[in-house]
């Protein structure tokens, strides 16, 4: 499975609920960020947790979010602070309106 996103792409985390084990933190659901690293493909933990093979493997990305985009002022951070999370591809959608060229 070739990765759908590249470094620098704007992505949005799916806002869906999920029954059972998953590795997408609730505080990032529905939030928009930028792909900053690609970590290859891994077996899907949502299946592995229940003894299933977790195939096909899911590409894994480090996505960076601006703190203010996540918490909208309701936290203790400085303007430029950020948070990253590692997210599997099936939790990400293109955030097409805001493509950027830089992933640093």
């Amino acid at each position: 499975m070739s990765p759908r996103f590249k470094i620098g792409d704007r992505v949005c985390v799916r806002a869906d609920d999920h029954e059972g084990h998953h590795r997408t933190p609730a505080y990032l659901k529905g939030k928009s960020g930028v792909v900053v690293k690609k970590f290859g493909a891994w077996r899907n933990p949502e299946e592995l947790a229940y003894g299933k093979p977790g195939l096909p493997k899911q590409p894994l990305y480090m996505v960076k979010f601006e703190m203010d985009g996540v918490w909208a002022g309701n936290g203790t951070y400085a303007k430029r602070d950020t948070v990253t999370a590692d997210l599997y591809e099936h939790w990400l959608e293109p955030d097409g309106d805001r493509q950027t060229g830089s992933g640093t």
Partner: peptide, 15 residues
């Protein structure tokens, strides 16, 4: 300093 970006790295997966 506020001029430093604090980057919180949430270790959510296989890294």
């Amino acid at each position: 300093a506020d001029s430093v970006e604090v980057r919180v790295v949430d270790s959510t997966a296989d890294c």
